[in-house]
């Protein structure tokens, strides 16, 4: 039974750092996609047009009811079958982005619905159209009220990004596995990777707290 040899971390930390860089890129892109994608999905879910609402509802139900890993498999293995060839990194971004767009849309939809009815009435009674009223009055309030919940989703995204290592994206977890394949010391490297994730998580939470304070409506 081997025991622990922490010196391997000092030798191999460049590999982990490289993985960390890719994780940051991966997460930044996925977060952006999930936020941008969440808005139309949220609006589609409360559309008065059944042809828009039902497919949206089905899509949300499907992607909320199945694991991210399964969805990643669908994208990574399924798209080539219909002629779309994406790199693991792009597949990973797409998978994470779509999955969390769905979760974000739920949060945003709740925020939109929670905006007092009177706001809607006031803007409509001034003559604003439904779309203008949504854009200028409802959405700004909805989005700032759900910032904390969205923040939680982003933190969850960061942690679930480890899954894309399974579809061979060269991020932090896969880098740890590369180091392990050379040193046969899984405990040290997975532990180190965990510590690095913990660190990024910590900074992300700090950043989100600052954003929350800035966008709070109670001035």
């Amino acid at each position: 039974m081997p025991g622990l040899k922490l010196s391997v971390l000092i030798e191999y930390y460049p590999i982990l750092l490289e993985g960390l860089l890719w994780t940051c890129i991966l997460c930044a892109a996925s977060i952006a996609l999930s936020l941008v994608g969440g808005v139309p999905l949220a609006l589609a879910g409360i559309s008065r047009n059944r042809l828009v609402r039902w497919p949206c509802g089905f899509f949300v139900w499907l992607f909320r009811g199945t694991p991210l890993l399964l969805q990643l498999f669908l994208i990574y293995f399924g798209l080539p079958q219909i002629g779309i060839y994406l790199s693991p990194m792009v597949s990973g971004i797409l998978g994470l982005g779509i999955h969390y767009a769905v979760y974000n849309s739920d949060v945003m939809r709740a925020g939109i619905v929670a905006v007092e009815r009177g706001q809607h009435e006031a803007s409509r009674s001034l003559g604003l159209s439904r779309a203008q009223s949504m854009r200028k009055v409802i959405l700004p309030q909805a989005l700032s009220s759900v910032t904390p919940a969205l923040g939680n989703n982003l933190i969850a995204l960061l942690k679930e990004s480890a899954l894309v290592s399974i579809i061979t994206v060269p991020e932090l977890t896969l880098s740890a596995q590369r180091a392990i394949s050379e040193t046969f010391r899984p405990f040290e490297f997975y532990f180190a990777a965990g510590a690095i994730y913990y660190g990024i998580n910590y900074f992300l939470e700090l950043g989100l707290k600052r954003v929350e304070m800035k966008t709070a409506l109670s001035r």
């Binding site: 942690k159 480890a162 040290e188 532990f191």
Partner: peptide
């Protein structure tokens, strides 16, 4: 803090792959 702040996948790997190293 630790188990909510790190990926579940990593936790599983530490236990399953790293476990033997600590018995």
């Amino acid at each position: 803090s630790v188990f909510r702040g790190t990926p579940c996948l990593i936790q599983l790997f530490v236990i399953y792959f790293g476990g033997p190293q600590i018995g």
